[in-house]
């Protein structure tokens, strides 16, 4: 039996495509279980979709190819969370906020594991330097 895999992907798609029923094709043509974790989709506006894809490696690979062919940017293991590491002082305040353990200190540096991030966005509130933001905030 072919092993089933799960990947988390951030999709950034151009404004002209918001009307394309992507999720329908992902299920129908690629036999994927999809789980939408977060979405910012507006008709005729650049959209963002954080999505979990579950299926065989080959199907996931082909699905990502299909998305790319539509001019959709795909970021694997992506999350909407982004951190200004250049200005981070590694104080550790965000770690207290992060229940899934996506944030930790390693050798005095903050390390972020996007695969563990559940986008609860509590770290944004916790950062005393206000260096943690989310792409879903951009509009």
């Amino acid at each position: 039996m072919t092993p089933i895999n799960k990947v988390k992907v951030m999709l950034i798609f151009p404004s002209m495509l918001a009307a394309e029923p992507i999720s329908y094709y992902l299920v129908k043509s690629y036999d994927l279980k999809i789980n939408i974790l977060k979405a910012y989709v507006n008709y005729n506006v650049e959209g963002r979709l954080l999505i979990e894809l579950e299926g065989t490696d080959a199907n996931i690979k082909n699905a990502l190819k299909y998305l790319k062919s539509l001019n959709i940017k795909t970021i694997k293991n992506g999350t909407g969370t982004y951190i200004d590491f250049d200005n981070c002082i590694a104080c550790g305040a965000c770690i207290a906020a992060c229940e899934p353990g996506a944030l930790k200190l390693e050798n005095d540096k903050l390390v972020f594991d996007g695969t563990k991030c559940l986008e609860c966005r509590l770290c944004e509130k916790a950062c005393p330097e206000r260096l943690i933001k989310n792409v879903f905030n951009q509009r």
Binding site: I89, A90, C91, G92, A93, I95, L105
Partner: peptide, 8 residues
């Protein structure tokens, strides 16, 4: 988790 930055 800390509040004081050991790095700094």
């Amino acid at each position: 988790s800390p509040m004081t930055s050991m790095a700094k």
